[in-house]
Computed example of a mutant assay.
Amino acid sequence: MPDIYTINLESPAYPPLLREISNPPSLLYVRGTLPARSTCLAVVGTRRNTRYGQQVTAEFSNGLARAGLCIVSGLALGIDGLAHEAALTAKGQTIAVLGSGIDDNHIYPATHRSLAKRIIAAGGAIISEYPPGFVPSRYSFPARNRIIAGLSIGTLVTEAPRKSGALITAYHALDFNREVFAVPHAITSLVGYGCNSLIARGAMLVTSPVDILHAIGIKPKEDPLLATQLTKIEAAIYNQLTREPKHVDALIEATTLDGQMVAGTLTVLELQGLVKHLGGHLYVKNN
């Protein structure tokens, strides 16, 4: 398997932050390129995300990747996959840590094998402490969570219920004396219970990527999108949007513009990176 290589604990190519943890893997199997200088931050959460979880994961991962951070996650369905996708959209680097072998036939989940290939093609990497051909087990996923936390200067949990593997990653981060960040949820939210619990226990409550950048000592870059010159119609639609999802029909009503004009303009704004379509004709401002 010519595209798979190994890095042992004594190698200068071994990730320095991972080497610092109490139980680093003695050998890493790698496909792609590990960042030489980029700061890594883990973004993790539930496999059964809500639309809110989708929105905040995309917003944070995209913003952090644009600021130069490498996004680390586990390639799982739900929040993990969304974090990788958002980093790729931002043309940033991302690392997927697997609980399986990293050969094509054993990348898990199988539905994310194409995502794994895009991560590698974009200059990122997929890694595992397990050899090619290894079939994932109930024990390999919790074990790989320590690697996700160990690679990263901090861990962000965007959405997690009471029992979630994402909380295991956060607890590892605490054990390794790394930062833990959590996105707040409604107190009635079962799928957000884990995030609220982390905040109650001392994790930093964050509401934007800038909160994390300040906390880890990185000055936010000036966003070139702020300098974008909008037409009168684009501005009318853009100014109606917030971080709260708004249906296209509400935009048509608020702006009194023709439906086709609103739909076309939203597409242009989305291509500019200014708005995000959440599905179901719902749009938000992409901060």
Rank of each mutant, 00 (worst) to 15 (best):
P2E: 15
S11T: 08
A13S: 14
P24C: 11
P24M: 10
L28A: 11
G32Q: 09
L34H: 11
P35T: 10
A36Y: 07
C40A: 14
L41S: 04
A42W: 02
V44L: 04
V44F: 01
R51A: 12
Y52I: 02
G53F: 02
Q55A: 14
V56G: 10
A58M: 12
F60L: 12
G63C: 08
L64F: 04
A67E: 15
A67R: 06
G68H: 02
G78N: 08
D80A: 12
H84A: 06
L88V: 04
T89C: 08
K91Q: 15
G92H: 02
G92F: 01
I95T: 02
V97A: 03
L98W: 00
D104L: 10
N105E: 14
A110W: 00
A110T: 07
S114G: 10
A116Q: 11
K117Q: 15
A121L: 12
A122F: 04
A125M: 03
P132Y: 00
V135C: 05
G150Q: 05
L151G: 09
L156C: 06
P161H: 09
K163S: 14
L167H: 04
L174I: 13
L174A: 13
D175K: 14
F176K: 01
R178T: 07
V183Q: 04
S189Y: 07
N196F: 05
T207K: 13
T207M: 10
T207W: 02
P209C: 06
L213I: 12
E222Q: 13
D223R: 04
P224F: 05
L225H: 11
L230E: 09
I233N: 11
E234C: 05
A235G: 09
T242S: 15
E244L: 06
A250Q: 11
A254N: 05
A254K: 03
G259T: 08
L266D: 03
T267V: 13
L269S: 07
L269R: 03
L271M: 14
L278N: 10
G280K: 07
H281W: 07
